[in-house]
Nucleic acid binder design. Structure first.
Lengths: 226, 226
DNA sequence: ACCTGAACACCGTTCAAGT
DNA sequence: ACCTGAACACCGTTCAAGT
């Protein structure tokens, strides 16, 4: 016996984290295992299935915390669950895309959506889940773009009038009016990745609170109606 | 003069809608224009830029409705705007993925996020926007999987014990406990695409209302605090 | 059970060259 | 300005065959 399915999934996750989703090919996963590409098809019927298994692995540790210790982490906090989910996805490169896509297939039947549903009902669960996916995917894409832009941007100063929309990655300040202000300082553009105007972790928390406030308001309304 | 940039974008959108994102290759777009693949690079520096232009086109008509006619559509309704945005994305195959990815690059600077921000503030805007993206992407992926599963599923009845997770598209009822109940009726599984347990359009509306309720609650709280 | 080797029908992008 | 033709370094998947 040489490689197990678990080996394949683990190798695929390594490749994903190191090279990103667009470079996470069956051929590269095979290479990481020192094996021919065709060997993977003994373990997995196709790439889509492998991606689904990777998604399961990424969110494996995420679930309701049933530690009955009184204190910070109360049992079954929906806010905590969403934050944990987001962090698990952000922990591996392009993890949000992989998990969101795989979960969409089983919409309404995923383990995490069910956990959330027990805490806040099915409408609240789906809203929280899909908001979390949307925010995580945006965060991850935005950060990668910023990181890539920071590498490119010394050479990208003046390139002539762009006939249409400029390539997204090249121009951090996409607004043409702001271009003249920001462009062409001699200092390297250090703070692109940080971008204090958009602290995405804090932004996520505020959105979460907004949804939870909506749930609380609904509960209060139902109480009055009774 | 033969093809303009607009021609290229239009052709790309046609290919996207007919063949889906994974088949929307530069080579196929070129073929749709009766042109060599290399010709596209006269209009566009790379595929990513083309996708961004397609995204802009998909959401072109979406914006605050400033019709001052008293009645159904009041000026600048955030709920209407999100629904319009979602419908515009769902109207073209894989449109949600394309738009969500392109918008992530300009997070905080997109036209639609700004429109929303004027109505509900920046936190509310981002929450609504990213929830809308998350829900639309899930909806679109789920529907495509269901449609695909409906084609396959006659032959997919019994295939032996799946060592790990089964390919997502093949098994509509992923829960192993539910399998014995649902599996192997002689009738064709007609209602897979409809799936009344998950009416995703209504689901989206309820989540939207939840977020808007949270915003209203926050406003009320601030009013009290003053 | 797990893998090799070869093949098939594809990709995005570059570049010299044409009109 | 817009396009061709050829090339480069890749894809996912299949299939007969080996051990």
């Amino acid at each position: 016996m040489r490689n197990s399915l678990a080996d394949v999934v683990a190798a695929a996750l390594r490749v994903l984290d190191e090279q990103g989703l667009e470079n996470c090919s069956m051929r590269r996963v095979a290479a990481a295992l020192d094996v021919q590409p065709s060997a993977l098809y003994h373990h997995v019927p196709n790439k889509q299935t492998l991606l689904a298994l990777m998604a399961d692995e990424i969110v494996l540790g995420v679930g309701p915390r049933v530690t009955t210790v009184s204190g910070a982490g109360t049992a079954g906090d929906p806010r905590r669950l969403c934050i944990d989910l987001r962090e698990a996805m952000l922990a591996v490169r392009d993890g949000a895309d992989v998990v969101a896509t795989a979960t969409a297939f089983r919409l309404g039947r995923s383990r995490i959506e069910n956990s959330l549903a027990q805490l806040v009902g099915s409408d609240g669960a789906r809203t929280l889940l899909l908001y979390t996916f949307g925010h995580a995917q945006s965060t991850q894409t935005h950060r990668q773009a910023a990181a890539l832009g920071a590498l490119v941007d010394a050479g990208a100063a003046v390139a002539g009038p762009p006939a249409a929309a400029p390539p997204a990655a090249a121009s951090p300040a996409a607004d043409p009016a702001a271009g003249a202000i920001t462009a062409r300082a001699d200092r390297p553009a250090v703070d692109l990745t940080v971008d204090p105007a958009v602290d995405l972790d804090a932004s996520f928390g505020r959105g979460l609170d907004l949804i939870l406030a909506g749930l609380a308001a609904r509960e209060a309304a139902e109480f009055v109606t009774q």
